[in-house]
Simulated scan of single mutants.
Amino acid sequence: MALLQKANVNYREETHEPVFTYEKAEEVARRLGFTGAESKSLFMKLKDGRFCMLVTLQHQRLDWKQLKNALGGKASFCSDEELKERTGCEPMCACPFGHPADITLVIDECVFASEKLVFSPGPPEKTVEISVEDVRKVLDCCDNPVVYLAEREME
């Protein structure tokens, strides 16, 4: 939340019952009137020990070859313990931004195809919605390296 404020972007934050599934996220979004695309943040570790947070959309499938080419090495999903330890996020509630500077942000450009993006800022009982134009402003304020994955067709 501090990063959103630092980037001086408008956002909508709502508190609700804990959300740990996309089905529950859709139910909460409908009830609270969120209109943005639901994000999916996947915490990963590369073979060389680097960490990254892949930010994409809920229905996007991961293209492992594209990810490997963009990062220069193979990646695998981190354990729930690594997620908590390195980011402070709860499993199923990883946030796309606000991580330590040594975590590379991998942004799937499909994120920019919608008008708004909906994501968990960390706690499972919070949801945030921002415009995709503001996503770029937030990324500009991050201390993290940022890598972009070229947009591809939804699968």
Rank of each mutant, 00 (worst) to 15 (best):
V19P: 03
V19W: 01
V19F: 00
V19G: 01
F20D: 04
F20P: 10
T21R: 07
T21V: 10
Y22P: 03
Y22A: 03
E23F: 08
E23R: 15
A25L: 15
E26W: 09
E26S: 14
E26G: 13
E27C: 06
E27R: 14
V28Y: 06
V28S: 06
V28G: 05
V28L: 07
V28M: 09
R30E: 10
R30S: 10
R31Y: 05
R31G: 00
R31I: 03
L32V: 04
L32M: 13
L32I: 07
G33R: 07
T35R: 14
T35F: 00
A37H: 04
A37V: 03
A37E: 07
E38F: 13
E38W: 11
S39A: 14
S39W: 02
K40W: 02
K40L: 02
K40A: 05
S41N: 15
L42P: 05
L42Y: 03
F43E: 07
M44H: 04
M44T: 08
K45F: 06
K45Q: 12
K47L: 10
D48Y: 01
D48Q: 01
G49V: 03
G49P: 04
G49Q: 06
G49N: 11
F51L: 12
F51M: 13
C52D: 02
M53I: 13
M53H: 05
L54G: 01
V55A: 08
T56R: 08
L57Y: 06
L57K: 02
L57N: 06
Q58A: 15
Q58V: 03
H59R: 15
H59D: 15
H59S: 14
H59I: 05
Q60G: 12
R61N: 09
R61Y: 07
L62E: 05
L62T: 14
L62W: 00
L62H: 10
D63K: 15
D63C: 12
W64I: 07
W64V: 06
K65T: 15
K65H: 11
K65L: 12
K65G: 05
K65Y: 11
Q66I: 13
Q66A: 15
L67W: 02
N69W: 04
N69C: 12
A70W: 03
A70M: 01
A70R: 08
L71Q: 11
L71A: 14
L71G: 11
L71N: 12
G72E: 02
G72T: 09
G72Y: 09
G73P: 10
A75M: 08
A75Q: 05
S76I: 10
S76M: 08
F77A: 10
F77G: 09
F77N: 10
S79N: 11
S79I: 03
S79P: 11
S79Y: 06
D80H: 12
D80Y: 12
E81H: 10
E81N: 06
E82V: 04
E82M: 10
E82Q: 12
E82A: 09
L83E: 01
L83H: 00
K84I: 12
K84C: 08
E85W: 07
E85H: 08
R86K: 15
R86A: 07
R86M: 09
R86D: 00
R86Y: 11
T87K: 03
G88S: 10
G88A: 13
C89R: 02
C89S: 09
C89P: 04
C89A: 12
E90W: 10
E90Y: 12
E90A: 09
E90P: 00
E90T: 13
E90Q: 15
P91Q: 06
